[in-house]
């Protein structure tokens, strides 16, 4: 087990390194060096930029030096000082904006995964035990529909329904009165009452695939002799189903969840834009549209690293559940 975890940790570390390279490439992609455009930007707003300050920034980011040195300086600043550079659009350090929005991003992502699990497992089991029944077909169809509707479209439609039917505005994560309020129980409850919408929207597109995985796994297991044995011994049907085959069928399911994570993170990004959630998604879109590349690169990196950590956790969980994986 220790060996397995170490091996997975090494892979994750290599992946994170590769992610940092890709993010750095993204920062470098737009033509010209960013300081020139930063300077032009400030001048345009009527601010005078002292030459010493520009020189200091040139030194700080290693501009004009070989690209490897620039990468090294960039990574070093992040690792040692948590310094992701400056947002060119607002002039605020990127890290300040990131930490501000990171917790809610994680919260929305985690709750979406939770939603997917809570919905997909029981429905998958039901569909398998009632194969070809009316409800099985209904769930399959709904699943396909969830797969086919783009997240943002579902978000728009839900917002429209909420607005026209209930006269309620559903954007954001807090009601206006709690937006600036300090944390309290009431604010937390308010957050929960807003959280379910992105949760459902991101979840629907993923439950479909997972219901099908769960259903297929269950169908494989239900034909096993041990299930028959359980029945022959006179166990109640729900016990026969939930105690043995479900537990076996869950294993491939958990690994699918690990693989679904990158897609869920992507889904959260686009949904958050429509719903105007205070998460990293809208920040990323704004940064990209404004060609604020330090910001964009940092967000891509943070989102990817989060995904890798999530996958790592789900892999380790899976290994705890299923000894066969450790021995591979």
């Amino acid at each position: 087990m220790v060996k397995f975890i170490i091996r997975r940790l090494v892979t994750a570390a290599v992946t994170i390194w590769a992610i940092s390279v890709v993010s750095f490439v993204i920062i470098q992609l737009p033509p010209g060096d960013f300081l020139t455009s930063y300077e032009a930007n400030l001048r345009q707003m009527g601010e005078n930029v002292p030459e010493e300050q520009l020189e200091a920034m040139r030194e700080r980011y290693g501009l004009g030096e070989p690209i490897v040195t620039q990468y090294y300086k960039w990574v070093k600043a992040i690792l040692l000082h948590g310094d992701f550079g400056r947002s060119m659009e607002s002039g605020v350090p990127v890290s300040v904006l990131l930490w501000d929005r990171l917790p809610l991003t994680v919260l929305v992502g985690l709750s979406s995964i939770l939603f997917v699990w809570v919905v997909a497992i029981p429905i998958g089991v039901y569909s398998a035990t009632h194969q070809y029944s009316l409800m099985d077909h209904v769930f399959t169809f709904l699943g396909f529909l969830g797969l086919a509707i783009p997240n943002f479209l579902l978000a728009l439609v839900l917002m429209w329904v909420a607005w026209s039917e209930f006269g309620q505005s559903v954007g954001g994560l807090y009601s206006p009165e709690y937006k600036a309020a300090p944390w309290s129980m009431a604010k937390f409850l308010d957050l929960l009452s807003h959280l379910w919408i992105p949760m459902v929207i991101v979840g629907t597109s993923w439950t479909a695939g997972l219901i099908r995985t769960m259903r297929a796994n269950m169908l494989d297991e239900l034909n096993q002799p041990y299930v028959e044995t359980g029945r022959a011994k006179g166990l109640r049907e729900w016990r026969v189903v939930w105690k043995y085959p479900v537990r076996v069928a869950l294993n491939p399911f958990i690994s699918t969840v690990g693989y679904a994570l990158p897609q869920i993170v992507g889904g959260v990004v686009i949904t958050a834009v429509v719903l105007n959630l205070p998460t990293l998604g809208p920040l990323l879109v704004r940064a990209l549209l404004a060609q604020d590349m330090f910001m964009a690169g940092a967000i891509v990196m943070i989102l990817s690293v989060l995904t890798v950590i999530g996958t790592l956790i789900s892999d380790i969980l899976l290994a705890i559940l299923d000894p066969r994986i450790r021995l591979e």
């Binding site: 992946t15 890709v22 693989y259 990158p262 990004v269 990209l288 989102l303 990817s304 995904t307």
Partner: peptide, 11 residues
């Protein structure tokens, strides 16, 4: 496969 596709596509 381990990095989220959409942010990467966007960037």
């Amino acid at each position: 496969r381990s990095v989220p596709g959409l942010p990467l596509w966007m960037a």
